[in-house]
Design a protein around this nucleic acid. Structure first.
Lengths: 253, 253
DNA sequence: GCGCTATACTTGTATATACAAGTATGTTAC
DNA sequence: GTAACATACTTGTATATACAAGTATAGCGC
């Protein structure tokens, strides 16, 4: 146990860096170096109070923030433990096509192809977690960047969750923007595939023969209901998904 | 100003929920409802101490955690302000192919096609941020899931950053796993495209004619150097990228 | 007008203390 | 043996207090 506490040599109250930060970094280094392994018990707050001659609140703050960062886990009444190593996740950001285009300094427009109430096929009903044959809203639209088609939107909406959807005018706002305004999603599922477009899609996207598409499908939950199930199809040669991040700009809990 | 403080009616010291939580939620609701707009100044800690009859440390904790969550911004000596609304980001997780396959309960194997030192083409040199014609390491490998090819890896490695790379044996560990073990990336860039494979790729991936591929390219930085630039090619009909998240499992700062 | 200083207000950090509440263990009563 | 209880140790929260340090402003001296 003393060996563990010895790790905390270099805590200095005179240093310009706050004490709680120094404690955090010390622990963080030990964990990331693999020196302390997952599940291992950390010294208790009181142990550290004695060893470092620092107030318990200061130590509490350090450990609390490490917990928020996912490096350690704390159990009320039991102690603090090194957390399992997080999955190494890399992330791609997806956002509303209209925003994305306009951030590029280009002009976005869209064209609604259809907006109807239809009976859900078994497949669609399953995706929306509704009984087969339920009435659902179905929107089809093309999004253009400087006049060139760049995204095909095929969206099913759960009328129980979004009754107003059918009456909206989507020439001005995108359905994505409208829905995000209406509710706060609490769960999302994404899939990205490469597919060959059928002829109708190829024509709508003004694509050459033999060109593939990037296809993104997304389901969005709110209140344990699937609100919307959307398939976005992009011409493979005209669009790519991507992002660049500093690795501490995002966090997975 | 009083109108703002009136929002804090429902703070109860007797409630089972901690006071700092109640304060956080109250503020969070006001911000998310659009009631308080970006840039608006919040009451100071001392204002809240008086208004809520709560210790300053409790309020400090609430505001500090809201800052960590990105909902507010605090300026030392000035005050606390409602933060700009975060971009609405949705994320896809990418991870080592070997891990992904084995988490699926399937068997991963890989085959190194080549591992050489080559002169970087202008394009490759640019991606690696090296002078044209630099010597770089070049690895090509196929990854198989239960014997079926599922990923083609084409990786360039900066020898200045990873001199040991060329001497490794990648039949046991994947290059991804090896590199992640060697250094901690501090920045990453991802792109996802749909492409048609050339004949060599099609054969390596055992694909039918006319099938598209999902192509992911990634650049990884450490110490402001590009360490590796990799292109991963997946058969479109055999693999998709995806993830499902509760929206508060990730966070973008 | 210009520059300096004093002042008031803000957030940031650290401490000492207190009590609540969860977990595990040992002990006692039956 | 088993159930109830006591105890020791842990984290979780809340308070009162103190000082440091950043920002803006008012007022003063010149």
């Amino acid at each position: 146990m003393n060996a563990i506490l010895d790790s905390f040599d270099d805590i200095s109250k005179a240093a310009p860096e706050p004490i709680y930060q120094q404690i955090k970094k010390t622990i963080q280094r030990r964990i990331e170096s693999g020196d302390w392994i997952a599940g291992q018990k950390l010294p208790s707050e009181n142990d550290l109070v004695v060893a470092l001659d620092v107030s318990r609140m200061t130590i509490n703050r350090a450990l609390r923030e490490l917990t928020q960062q996912g490096l350690i886990k704390r159990v009320h009444g039991l102690g603090s433990f090194v957390a399992e190593a997080p999955r190494h996740a890399s992330l791609i950001e997806l956002q509303d096509i209209a925003l994305e285009i306009e951030q590029d300094g280009k002009h976005h427009s869209s064209q609604v192809l259809s907006l109807d109430t239809v009976a859900a096929s078994p497949q669609i009903a399953a995706q929306l977690e509704l009984p087969e044959g339920s009435q659902v809203y179905y929107l089809r639209a093309v999004h253009l960047q400087d006049g060139l088609p760049i995204q095909l939107e095929s969206r099913y909406v759960n009328p129980l969750a979004m009754p107003e959807f059918i009456g909206q005018d989507f020439s001005g706002v995108t359905a994505t923007a409208y829905l995000l305004q209406q509710f706060k999603p609490d769960e999302m599922e994404h899939r990205v595939r490469a597919v060959m477009p059928d002829r109708a899609q190829r024509e709508l996207l003004a694509m050459e023969d033999g060109e593939p598409c990037l296809q993104l499908t997304r389901r969005t939950w709110s209140d344990d209901q699937v609100v919307t199930y959307v398939t976005l199809t992009y011409p493979g040669n005209r669009h790519e998904l991507g992002a660049r991040y500093a690795t501490n700009e995002y966090q997975l809990r």
